[in-house]
Amino acid sequence: MGLWQTLFPSGLFTASFMQNAWLAGTAVAALSALVGFFVVLRGATFVAHAVPRASFAGAAGAVLAGGDTVLGLAIFSALSALGMAALGTRRDQGQTTALVLMAALGLGSLFLALGGAYAPEVYALLFGQIVGIGRMDVYAILGLLLLALAATALLYRPLLWSSVAPDVAEAKGVPRRRMEILFLLLVALAATAAVPIVGALLSFSLMVGPAAAAAYFGRSPGQALGIAVLIGILSIWLSLVFAYDTGLPVGFFVAAVTAVFYGLGRLWAHLWQIERGRGQVPV
């Protein structure tokens, strides 16, 4: 009894809806952190923010058409990613990303209005519904995770090179444009998996938070990627425990916990730099 029992009541692990939540949450966190690592490397956080939101319009469209909301998400996230890739210019990626996002949100509001005032499925997609998912959803998310793992394993070196030094990579035969499209499709994949679980509004925090924090803890790309996945998984686990205990939304805890990890990362980098600075001989 006592604190342990309060923090980890028995239903946390035994209730079947919670078991689904643990599995799906872990997979989504790992997938988001994996893709988020490249998002942070490329400085493409706005894209990571825009694609999940744009995909929301697809879910609204699916509700209107009476189709599967996840399919709608997948289609719209892929389309918006490709739209951003097609329109994007090197000079101002943000501008075209915003335009695609606006177009999608406009469509989304139209679909919602045509579909009736209140659609519970759509509301769930805005804020996520981690405790409401079935076993089939879990399998689907695990499938998406495997797909993303295979894709990043295959693309790892060229995508890394194209992300950190695009000019050299292109000169050595890694086409910048093709890498950009593949990267955006990875973001769309992560968005499709994450939006039903943590919601269109907060899936961004799972994609960017752990990877941004890991950039401070890890020194090599491999380290940073591994730490990002660990922080992502740890964030969702902590959030599930807190949400189960308090009855407050998981999304809130995901945002708060990843923000804390990011803060710790900044602090770590700050302290490390002071330490390093002390050891240096002034030039």
Binding site: L155, R157, P158, V164, V174
Partner: peptide, 24 residues
């Protein structure tokens, strides 16, 4: 590069060796 890019000098040079190859 960004000041906080998780990439060491040796990682950058290593990309010149095999960065265009598939896989890791």
């Amino acid at each position: 590069p960004d000041p906080d890019l998780p990439l060491r000098a040796r990682d950058l040079v290593a990309l010149g060796l095999d960065g265009a190859r598939w896989g890791f």
